[in-house]
Nucleic acid binder design. Sequence first.
DNA 1: TTGTATGCGTTATCAG
DNA 2: CTGATAACGCATACAA
Lengths: 330, 330
Amino acid sequence: MTSVDVAKKAGVSQTTVSLVFSGKAGGRISAATVEAVRAAAAELGYRPNAAARALRSGTASAVGLVVRDVTHPFFGRTLRGAQKAASEAGHVVVLIDDNYGRGDAAVEALRDGAIDGFLYFAAVPSEAMRAPGAPPVVMVESVEEGLPFVRLDSEGGADAAMRHLVELGHTRIGSLRLEAGDLHGGQTFDLRHAAWAEHLRAIGADPAAQAVGTTAFDADSTIAAARAMLDVPVAERPTAILADDDLLAAGVVAACHQLGLRVPQDVAVVGFDDLELARLMSPPLTTVAFDAEALGAAAFETLLAKLQGRRPRDRVLESRLIVRGSTVAE
Amino acid sequence: MTSVDVAKKAGVSQTTVSLVFSGKAGGRISAATVEAVRAAAAELGYRPNAAARALRSGTASAVGLVVRDVTHPFFGRTLRGAQKAASEAGHVVVLIDDNYGRGDAAVEALRDGAIDGFLYFAAVPSEAMRAPGAPPVVMVESVEEGLPFVRLDSEGGADAAMRHLVELGHTRIGSLRLEAGDLHGGQTFDLRHAAWAEHLRAIGADPAAQAVGTTAFDADSTIAAARAMLDVPVAERPTAILADDDLLAAGVVAACHQLGLRVPQDVAVVGFDDLELARLMSPPLTTVAFDAEALGAAAFETLLAKLQGRRPRDRVLESRLIVRGSTVAE
DNA sequence: TTGTATGCGTTATCAG
DNA sequence: CTGATAACGCATACAA
């Protein structure tokens, strides 16, 4: 079932069929002919072959979104936003789970002919993808020299969170972080930590004297790291903890429960991302919300600009602090 | 940069280059020639064009995984399992978020030429995908007449969960479910509910007399539905609730906290899936665990069998009950 | 407004 | 073991 069959059936040339299906019929092909072509195609069940189209036109109308960990709900929302924007532009987004480097094979397999460009979300493009002649790349939530990026205003979010905690009177504010090298959120975590340190200095507290925990991205390590921060004499215990992420914050709350500490009376907790989880927790979690869908859409728009030869524009998307029961008793 | 350039540089024919890169060189091309071709290709930075290969060979070495909601962590683990199995077979998995029907456009765009077959995870293939001539489809966690499937042993899991609750002495066991029509988990939810009812009848309790809640898949509705089940006179209140999913179970626990009910003393809670969340909760959640990665891998294997003309084999993967603090105080 | 001719980069068939 | 040669299905320059 090819455009030739359709042409034969409709009594026109294959060119005409091509014109109709690539949306370039406007003003060139008569309405009657278009109608006849469509009717013939429908009857035969014809649909254009994506591979042939990609080969001939040199563009596949597909972009890849490479993520560090599909399992994180935030990525899902980002994909959804990108997919919506893409479909409005007639493109398709395919998701590639990098899972600590193992997505490179998929990227390599798709980069020539099958996919026009890539969005890297907290994943690091391989050397080959940085070389001249490589397909266009847009960075999401992390920054690489020379590549356009779209990211969230992490520093603004951390800033608002810290202001909130300081206003509540906290002066011993701990920080629970992902292990260095874990790029679930990309380098924007550094910005969060910088805002944390700055606010502490502003109230005359020494950041180096605060409780800082480091953990891998799973429940057991998170809870263990939080317990290590909290299971100390009262005088040394932080009265508040800023966690890099809602899942880490949930670990802090779990550790508090295990140690018999009350949230927020003994320990106030703040996370990032406003996942569904934040509302399922007891107490519900105070968190810095981001618009994940908008992030995905902005990333796609930026890549599309590159693909169309327009100049891409770096973007930073705003954040919003949502105060709930984990910092202020309800 | 095409195979012709490589051939020229290596001083061989284009055919030879093709043979080398499609892995069909074994026993046909001399080792020395293969080496020369690879060297030339490496120097020129040649990589085969996926579109041309797909057009000519009629197979793209890519399969699509259509999911109902990328945001759910269970899907992420399934994708990962499928991707691992696929890469070992030289294939690539692309994820398509159906998001209640909106993935159809992506499926349509990719089905001819770009993707060889589809895995439908708790999503429903459109009419066009069921028509003769449509690409092969494997159903995951739901069943469609005439299509091969891979699913989890939900009935076995529900059975173990109910046996556990009955052994603990519970006789009023409620059920919190997703709205009919919400296919986050496909029809296997029906099997869970059947096992629930059967166990109740076995202990002489009337399933119709139990508390049953229904909710959409978000935190607010879940908590509201759980409150409605629990905010009743003690004599009518269920002493245990079997939730369709860990996220729903988390909503039940949150509702208990809001109502001042203790878990597990006043209400025991059991979920499904063993998400990370289950270990982050307080108390940690008793849940029916499934091997999501194995599910993804089995689904891919089944599709591969179809693609290779072998007879696909329906599969049901085992479950395992994990007892934690939400049913037995620690 | 429509048709003719050509080639995108690869794989497959068949000779040598 | 290797090389000509012919498709695969579509899009585009150009001609009519």
